[in-house]
Design a protein around this nucleic acid. Sequence first.
DNA 1: GGCGGCGGTGAAAAATCTGTGAGTTGATCC
DNA 2: GGATCAACTCACAGATTTTTCACCGCCGCC
Lengths: 263, 263
Amino acid sequence: MANILWVEDQLHWVDRFQPILEATDFDGEPTRVTVFGFAEAACQHIRSPGAARPDLALLDAHMNGNDSAGFSVSRALRRKWPELPMIYLSEHSGTGIEQQAFETSEARDFIAKHQANIESVLCWRIKAVLRQHALQQRGASDAVIDSGDLRLDTETWEVYWRGHKLMNPGNSRRPLGPTPRKILRYLVEAAPRPLSTAQIADRLDADPERFSYANYRQHIRTLRLAFDHAEGGQGDFIEACKRGEGIVTFGDQGAYCWKPVVR
Amino acid sequence: MANILWVEDQLHWVDRFQPILEATDFDGEPTRVTVFGFAEAACQHIRSPGAARPDLALLDAHMNGNDSAGFSVSRALRRKWPELPMIYLSEHSGTGIEQQAFETSEARDFIAKHQANIESVLCWRIKAVLRQHALQQRGASDAVIDSGDLRLDTETWEVYWRGHKLMNPGNSRRPLGPTPRKILRYLVEAAPRPLSTAQIADRLDADPERFSYANYRQHIRTLRLAFDHAEGGQGDFIEACKRGEGIVTFGDQGAYCWKPVVR
DNA sequence: GGCGGCGGTGAAAAATCTGTGAGTTGATCC
DNA sequence: GGATCAACTCACAGATTTTTCACCGCCGCC
């Protein structure tokens, strides 16, 4: 289902476009449009932990007399879903607002509300952005990930650290659990970018209400212990993490980050 | 070097835009624009084995009275360089030409020639497409802000000043705290405009009631100390700030401003 | 000269974040 | 039904970051 988040303070545009958007087939599934009339309401919704990830955001930069209300929504979105494509729909094309949208807000497109055949143009451009984004998402999936001394086979999900297979720290005869393995994979894939709790929850396809930071933290602990056991259990890996190598706490938004270990 | 391939049959557009494009810095290197006045000539060039790969193609769909001359160039490009981003620059926005550009020709953008401030719009949009494409190519790599001797990676949040990583001034083994990092980023992004307490509070997504000027001031202090430590801790940076370089107090509404430091 | 506001400073208090250990839950298998 | 195991929760202490507070010097102004 194509899920569109739209922030627009002028109701007549909503009345005009919403039915058209909902009747348009963007990705082979029914389209749902969620509209917010105020930037604050949208931000609040976005920040709430249970918010479902939209596929695309449609923003108006200039709302309720505030030049940058739309940009605050954009920042909230970027924080929660860094990859989310955003399109601006505005009456101020060709102005500094358009420039700001492209240069600091990483807009994918900026559509002038006043133009010929706007309904169609809107749909074409949304479709184009969604297609482009889909293309981008399914790039890069090698079977084996190598990062320093780590070897991660994404087919069999086995993980080797300096030649030793990572085992379950609670019971060294058993392999590492599936969730920690996945988390490790996502961390290594995302390196050197950190992954926040929300991003991990998103990738694990977990219920964002349930997957908490405490949860993430615990898996990180499991992983660190597993690495530590793999290199002898002297606590060296834990120490390395504190120094900023291996699985590093990022210090914001409950995020962790994979940094290759130098020897 | 940003290499742009442009196919355009009306010379006056070339005269008008080419100098601007060539004077615009799209990727930190000089820009070169190669113009073809005829679709056939462009296709022939593209198919020739020695043709250099451009970074972006600018096409006009409707040329020399032929509705689809531009699309033939697009097909030639797609065959030779499947990943090449293409932007249409046309007088026929909102028509079937735009639809075709997006739906069958995988246009990244479609820019109407007749619109306010077209020169700037063209540059913003080209820049946006190039950035998006670069991101896509190297698997969403560095979004780095450069300002003088400062290098700020907005993905990993690492900040380097003259090659030294900015650390927490209170504990030099630890990285700069999240809030100061963000404030620095916003300041540099907003430069040369100052950011008042209220603006920072908005960007930090903080409660404007709680985020006071005293607060902002303290973070600025942390930042200045961090810079100072990074260059040796002689207080030089603090002095520079007083002289009007680096993180400058703006003197109104409790605002601060980032000014690149000249050496 | 006294006054008041602004911005810099240092330290203390408050809030938040993290690591840790232990306890629950729920699913699966015997 | 009971054992087992991974995933999840909870509580708490220690570390770290952020906010608050009090004070100081400077400057313009009456």
